[in-house]
Design a protein around this nucleic acid. Structure first.
Lengths: 342, 342
DNA sequence: CTGAAAGCGCTTACAG
DNA sequence: CTGAAAGCGCTTACAG
């Protein structure tokens, strides 16, 4: 050893130290770490032993610097926090994303932002090379920034985005129109004729499409589609919308509601007005979340695979980042789950 | 210009380029970026102009590498995803954390893990120098890893952690025992005498302490504390616990419930059994979340400032990371909010 | 106040 | 298959 002072390694071990312990060069250790095939079996063993011995973990920053990749992806949530947290749909989606990412080297950066305008910090963060890609859930059409984000960064949307660039964006969705048809058709099959709907916000494709499905099914059956109230995908909104419908259309005998959470509110409202479910009013929800089974009467609902959607969102982004060409649009299936409410 | 080829800057601009445009050295630009006072006013102007012109943002990885700081903190959620998302308490806490972090240079890494045992990936991630600190919310006593995490990393807990190291940990909490006393005392003041409680999991300090407050208030009033059922901080658990209590103790005339979400379930259960609130059974919840106002009857509850707790959690960690000495324990106040249920 | 230079911990052609 | 060397984009003593 030419240098007398063998620095006591303080803090985390580096490649350098592993190399010294293993008696090889840094380059070789790096190859082992990265699973390069150009390493002889015996050297491999020695290096792996040294890595284990020192409990070596590569420095992320150093890696990022040379690889020009941050190995982190942003989860952008342009939504009121309580709505994000309050709807089990998002819990499933996030769980799915998290599950898929657990099998990768990427980590998830949570970016809560205001619905219509991301903060300057978020913008700089997303555009500043701090993440390799982004997943945007619950996108509203009003926002211009996120719509154009995909010009600078690989982006995957949860749900079809609105906007001029939509035929270029990657997104995961279900066929919401078909879901709307299925839910409504079920009510028609049950012999209902005065079928109202509670939709979601007009600036969200999921709302618009489910509503269209409702209209299509009614048209097909020769029924009227004038009984409509707009909710906001919250339970309170469901209550308000249902009360309005009951007052305006006392004749209604069925309700197709664009989310279980709103349907849960509708059940509360019907109960308050003394209307029986399904006897007086039959209901179909959407999601098949825990809200479908939390009340007294089990909710018939159009199930969508939220967790799987999360998995596919993450998977699509990962493939994009790996330079592959995943499908631009993935549409998963909905399924009618019949319970007591209709 | 000695070199004929002036490389076209592709990708993001670097310090080097800013320096060139401003006609100064990299070091000077770096000083401007970092707000060093050792920069002359005129140079400052020139450099800032160049930064704006190039829309320069410092490379995070390069910075981390030399600064030996990642500028990111982990939000560790050792909790079933649906419970985390389902309880508005967490929404508020996360909102608070996010708000406080927006004023800093730190970003939030979301780590969803299993309640009793974080994944290997999460462990390596937390211990591997990928974050500068961590905030742990909803900690259960069963977990050994997170309890000892503070030995390797600055950690702030949301709620008093259980475990041997508890007198060394940083945490933000409310006085849950006192909250329990306040809620229960209110029921006593209303003239109730057969006061039951629905508690949370036995492995969580918040549960244990609120239960103790209930006991203390009853003891003080000379009332019996044998009417108890354990919930799990979910609405479904509240329903089950309430039904059990009603069956076992038909004489009960009041209920102190350790969370609004469980109280919401209890209201459902009472309604199902045909018991009137507050006439037959008076109820007090805990949190003052949206669940306190979502049902037919407004819930009297012990309010805790969840969002502010989140802010203080982040603030405490930030101060720790800045080398300051924030208070080890911050206890915020609870407050009784009286509505219709008692 | 300012710049030249070293160094943070990696990866990756380039030789051999 | 393996190593020496350059370089990723910054910050920070060290001189001046």
């Amino acid at each position: 050893m030419s240098d007398g002072t063998l620095a006591t390694p303080v803090g985390r071990p580096t490649l350098e130290e592993v190399a010294r312990v293993a008696g090889v060069s840094r380059a070789t250790v790096s190859r082992v770490i990265n699973g390069s095939p150009r390493v002889s079996p015996d050297v491999l063993v020695v290096v792996e032993k040294a890595i284990a011995e020192l409990d070596y973990v590569p420095n992320r920053a150093a890696r990022s610097l040379v690889a020009r990749a941050t190995m982190s992806i942003a989860l952008v949530v342009p939504e009121d926090t309580h709505r994000f947290f309050g709807d089990p749909y998002f819990a499933d989606v996030v769980q799915g994303i998290s599950d898929r990412l657990d099998d990768s080297d990427y980590v998830l950066n949570l970016q809560l932002t205001h619905p219509s305008s991301p903060s300057e910090k978020t913008k700089r963060y997303l555009l500043g090379g701090n993440v390799d890609g982004a997943i945007v859930v619950s996108h509203h059409s009003g926002d211009h920034f996120l719509t154009s984000l995909s010009r600078s960064l690989p982006v995957v949307f949860g749900g079809r985005p609105i906007g001029e660039a939509k035929d270029r964006d990657y997104y995961i969705d279900v066929d919401n129109r078909l879901g709307g048809v299925r839910g409504t058709q079920h009510l028609i099959d049950r012999g209902r004729t005065a079928i109202a709907t509670i939709t979601g916000p007009a600036d969200m494709p999921a709302s618009v499409d489910r509503e269209q499905g409702w209209r299509d099914a009614l048209a097909e059956a020769g029924l009227s589609d004038h009984r409509l109230a707009r909710g906001d995908f919250t339970e309170a909104g469901g209550i308000r919308a249902a009360l309005a419908l009951i007052d305006e259309h006392p004749d209604l005998d069925a309700l197709f509601v664009a989310s279980d959470l709103m349907a849960s509110g509708a059940l509360l409202a019907l109960d308050e007005r003394g209307l029986r479910v399904p006897d007086d009013v039959a209901i179909v929800g959407f999601d098949n979340s825990k809200y479908a089974t939390r009340g007294k009467v089990g909710l018939t609902t159009v199930a969508q695979p939220a967790q799987e959607m999360g998995v596919v969102m993450a998977d699509t982004l990962l493939r994009l980042l790996a330079g592959e060409s995943p499908p631009r649009v993935t549409t998963l299936d909905t399924e009618l789950v019949v319970r007591d409410s209709s």
